[in-house]
Simulated scan of single mutants.
Amino acid sequence: MNSQIIDTIKQYETIVIHRHVRPDPDAYGSQLGLKYLLQHNYPEKRILAAGEHDYTLDFMDFPDVVQDADFKGALVIVTDTANTERVDDQRYASGAKIIKIDHHPNDDAYGDILLVDTNASSASELVYELFTYGRDHENWTMPDSAARLLYAGIIGDTGRFLFPSTTQKTFAVAGELIKFNFDRNELHNGMYEMDRNLLHLQGYIYQNFVMEESGAAYVKITLDVLKEFEVTATETSLLVGSLGNVKGLKAWVIFIEEETEIRVRLRSKGPIINGLAKEFGGGGHPMASGATAYSWEEADRVIERLIEICAS
């Protein structure tokens, strides 16, 4: 599959790389890491990264401004995105050919060429595997900028190597990436340092979460709470793992209210919860998923189902 992807890349003068909406470090890491990797090895090609920028990821990099005309005859590569509804910038479909590179369950097998491996820790790990094939067969080399972004993507999606998705291969890839010239401390600070108001909201989560006998836990962050702590819904992404150290907890959900919907962020230490996310229009990994609720009554149904899952 890697050879087919590289052969396809060679055929196009313009390549537009996409990732999912509400990006996380792996979305940026795989997308922008791939962009710099291809720019480095094919300087004659035009490589663009599409999608709306998330200011919480300023420390990583920035996507490009992509025009409608850029898609004409272009190769489109979508990384870290399980289904078409979550592709950031739906113009992706107007390209000439689509390659999907992803590590989520392949429920939506879109694209002309698919590189999907659910055993990979991250899409960034898959991009590194593509690089190793290119290195061995096409004399590819990797710039420091790409190594930095791929490393950040792996760190982000493995929870600093704490999540079960971390494998021996993951450690080996990370070990290769840290050989490149970039400041790991600066990168880690950008990923995990928080402003004081966000830490105060984390304290609110610790004080107000509810844990059921089944081992399910939940907390509701309303618009009023966000306003009180002067935190945006986007910034709360840094707090999703906060309850992971609670003894006896099996799985948890954090609800973040927005103007027109409620974000549902699910995490687990054992029970499979991506099926629950799908029940409410979402999806994701077995231990880390997301969905959307459109009322607090619907959010309560998520809680009921999570309790059932943890009790079974």
Rank of each mutant, 00 (worst) to 15 (best):
W296K: 13
D112K: 10
V302P: 04
D70F: 00
L34Q: 07
P105K: 10
S214R: 06
I77V: 14
T166C: 09
G134H: 13
V21E: 12
I98N: 05
D64I: 03
S242G: 04
I254C: 03
Y128Q: 05
T81M: 08
L48S: 04
N2G: 02
S124L: 08
M1F: 08
F229I: 13
R263A: 10
L226E: 01
F71K: 01
R263E: 04
L187K: 04
G156C: 10
I9K: 03
E279Y: 10
L198M: 14
G111N: 11
E297G: 11
N181T: 08
I303G: 02
Q168V: 12
A288C: 09
V76C: 07
Y110M: 06
E212N: 12
A233G: 15
R135W: 09
A147M: 05
T158K: 12
L126Y: 06
A217R: 04
S122V: 08
I155M: 15
A96I: 00
Y12G: 03
A216H: 00
A174S: 14
L149R: 01
A50F: 02
A96T: 00
A49H: 01
S289M: 05
W296D: 15
N185D: 14
L34F: 09
A174C: 12
S3G: 13
L198R: 06
L199C: 13
V253I: 14
A27E: 01
E85F: 02
R267K: 13
R148G: 01
H200M: 15
Y218K: 00
Q90C: 04
N119C: 08
Q11M: 13
L238C: 04
E44D: 14
T166H: 10
L32R: 02
K220I: 12
D195N: 08
H285R: 12
Y294F: 15
V76P: 01
A120F: 06
F182Y: 11
E212K: 11
T232A: 07
M194C: 14
F161Q: 02
A82E: 15
T132G: 00
N2E: 14
L149P: 05
R46T: 05
P164L: 09
L48N: 03
V21C: 11
G51T: 09
L126R: 04
V116Q: 11
M1V: 14
G175H: 09
P63K: 05
I17F: 09
D70P: 01
N181K: 14
G290A: 12
T232V: 07
I15R: 00
L149V: 07
K247V: 13
H53I: 02
